[in-house]
Design a binder for these strands. Sequence first.
RNA 1: CGAGGUGUGGCUCAGUUUGGUUAGAGCGCUACGUUAGGGACGUAGAGGCCGCAGGUUCAAAUCCUGUCACCUCGACCA
Length: 477
Amino acid sequence: MAKEKKLVEAITSMEVDFAQWYTDVVKKAELIEYSSIRGCMILRPLGYAIWENIQRQLDADFKATGVENVYMPMFIPESLLQKEKDHVEGFAPEVAWVTHGGGEKLQERLCVRPTSETLFCDFYSNIIHSYRDLPKLYNQWCSVVRWEKTTRPFLRSMEFLWQEGHTAHATAEEAEERTIQMLNVYADFCERVLAIPMIKGRKSEKEKFAGAHATYTIEALMHDGKALQSGTSHNFGDGFARAFGIQYTDQNNKLQYVHQTSWGVSTRIIGAIIMVHGDDSGLVLPPRIAPTQVMVIPINQKKEGVLDKAYEIKDRLGEFKVKVDDSDKSPGWKFSEQEMRGIPLRIEIGPKDMEANQAVIVRRDTREKLVVSLDEIEKKVGEVLETMQREMLERAKAHRDAHTYTATTMAEFEEIAANKPGFIKAMWCQDEACENEIKEKTACTSRCMPFEQEQIAETCVCCGKPATALTYWGKAY
RNA sequence: CGAGGUGUGGCUCAGUUUGGUUAGAGCGCUACGUUAGGGACGUAGAGGCCGCAGGUUCAAAUCCUGUCACCUCGACCA
């Protein structure tokens, strides 16, 4: 395959330096701006519009399963945070504390929420009394703060936007069912809308959420072969309920503890969109998440009638999200701008086209050019957007599959980890000692034990004892 | 938190080793004109407490001390 000509000098090539490429895209596409606070980013209009689209569509998916939105305070009293032992141990090292208010030292420190389990639990303990009060299916859209040591735009920032769903159920079965249901909502959304294929599975004991009974995850593979945990769904069992005293009276007038879940996705998912679909010209957005789907670019726009024709095309494409770039930049500039910002389709319209009653449609992902008659432009745009959405998912899947390896011996595992970036499937005994040894030898962590299990060997890749689970391993963000 | 690196117009950087008039360049920005199918060109202009604080010196972007911020890698991390 011929080496693609590099059109935008301002973006470092992926091959040269993937991390730098990522930073360049994030900046050149104007997704974010660094702020004056370390590790906190400013979401610019394009970055925020993508988040709004994610939010709108996921929110509808949640509500279709009966979830309601609430809003909780952003501060958590220290005493409340400390009620669940594992939870506080997991989060204490990275919380920000408020020690003063209005110039006075506070009686009790307040932490800025790193996650809101404790607030929801406290709340639930007050409002749940009877089996008739269950289930509670609440979600909130908010930001949380974690005092991270190193940060990267979208992937890890000190403050980030997310949603956190928190549910309370009468039975363990119902909680488990909800945990899996929400993981499926996430995975379906990612495939259908973001065109990112996900591996669904369970986290190891070591990787699971602080205080959870079980954590489920969706894992995606980035273009550089590193894994990104893109969303999680936790089954808390009755652990938090016991710590917070969340009890209800059942049909037989007996006191019972509730069973809880929590689940979340964050702006990190935007990092996944960038690193799965982006190329050396910048961002590539799947049509279903793109804030602008079509950019009409007039050629020689000073010429009589060209701009009018561009606006006319925009009006005719009313069912899509269309903009006209009528700035006085040169056409070449506008092409690059549209590409850097990941706008799925561009329509070029100039004097030559007008004469022939046609326009040129260019796909962002393949740069394929299509000359279409103006008479059928609505139909063509619809078709191309759909094709693009479908093919982006197919390409991402093909890339992931081509970078998924299997290892049955440690030597094999080490050889792959050292030379081939991607997922490694290997059998594991689920002993944490092996997990640690694998990390030490290969820098790979366990990503998940997928729902779709295969028996590729009898014994653990590390210790040789009988294996209990096929596990995905990889270097992770 | 450890190792390394970087702070000079909006951006990318030169100048620092060897202290010396008025601190430079390219890009971007503004105005006018010519252009226009893959980041056009000309002319004229605006824009700098050289990260911050001390110190050395006749003289500091440059040397010394401290400090802050950011970046990369590692450790850590739902």
